[in-house]
């Protein structure tokens, strides 16, 4: 029953916590952690990389070394010292003590037979819900009111504006003092965004998408991204080949695509599935050829 999971996170700590959650283990001392990749800080969240850890429940004594995945594992049930964490995991799958393959209960929850999977803890809530009965006009004032109250509870001077564009609620918090709500690399902004969505969920079953900018951070980030893209474009032009960027949001990818599209001799495209979708910048052999990209203008 060696099941291990590979999890990606902003820090080792975050990734391990998510992995333990995944495994149904509550004690840090009950798992073995292997750091696959140390996290690195980037500039404005660019050029950095996530931590990747491989976590498995610690096996203590008992059934010895035979830790082949799946086969026969469930037979030995309760007498095993490691039964505790196993039970915790089984319970959530509703498969306790049976020979049936586990990991059916929680959708995509437990890993099968130790197969590695990399997943982002942030990914969980990201699934797009179909926009049924979503009324952004009804939800926008809730967003506005929440943000106003937040700025006020901080004792900051600032203004809040909401607009609706293509069914997306665009909320803008402005004012010098609201910089306090941005945080290092937008960490506080992301947290405020998350909480804003949570407050919407309390009142509406289906919620509109919300875009949030505070103190012009998103705009500055766009500029920083363009500069970053410019450096990478130069590198590709001088060294040839391709450069694979770190995963980014659709909005960020679009900035990169647009920067690349403006330069002859390079092209860009996206690969991978959200939220791990990333841009690749590559040299165009035929200099006269298309300098654009495959998706810069519409889908990113």
């Amino acid at each position: 029953m060696v099941e291990w999971v590979e999890v990606r996170g902003k820090s080792i700590e975050v990734a391990v916590a998510a992995a333990m959650n995944e495994l149904g283990v509550t004690e840090r001392s009950d798992v073995d952690v292997e750091v696959v990749q140390e996290p690195e800080k980037g500039f404005l969240g660019l050029g950095g990389r996530d931590a990747i850890v491989r976590v498995k429940p610690r096996v203590r004594r008992g059934r010895g070394r035979d830790r082949r995945p799946r086969t026969g594992a469930s037979r030995t049930g309760g007498s095993r010292p490691e039964g505790r964490s196993r039970d915790a995991a089984s319970r959530s799958g509703g498969q306790r003590g049976s020979n049936a393959p586990r990991s059916q209960g929680r959708s995509g929850g437990n890993s099968r037979s130790g197969a590695p999977r990399t997943r982002s803890p942030e990914a969980a809530n990201r699934a797009e819900r179909p926009p049924v009965d979503v009324n952004p006009a009804e939800q926008a004032p809730v967003v506005e009111q929440f943000l106003r109250g937040l700025v006020e509870s901080f004792g900051l001077e600032g203004s809040v504006r909401v607009e609706i564009e293509d069914d997306v609620i665009i909320a803008t918090v402005e004012g010098e003092q609201t910089e306090a709500l941005v945080g290092v690399r937008g960490s506080v902004l992301d947290a405020v965004h998350e909480i804003t969505k949570t407050t919407l969920h309390r009142q509406f079953k289906d919620t509109a998408r919300v875009r949030l900018d505070i103190a012009g951070y998103a705009e500055r980030r766009r500029q920083a991204l363009s500069i970053y893209a410019g450096q990478l474009i130069e590198q590709v032009m001088s060294e040839g080949g391709e450069i694979m960027l770190e995963p980014m949001s659709a909005a960020d990818r679009k900035v990169i695509h647009d920067s690349v599209a403006a330069v002859d001799g390079v092209r860009s495209y996206s690969e991978g599935e959200p939220p791990r979708r990333y841009v690749v910048i590559s040299q165009v052999e035929d200099q006269a050829g298309e300098e654009g990209d495959d998706e810069g203008d519409d889908e990113v």
Binding site: A17, P121, A124, N125, V188, D190, A191, E194, I195
Partner: peptide
Amino acid sequence: GRVIGRRGRTARSIRTVAQAAADE
């Protein structure tokens, strides 16, 4: 449950915002 959120996601955000307040 709602305050903690799925996988502690909301709790994490609340902690971040609380620290931002503390920074003030």
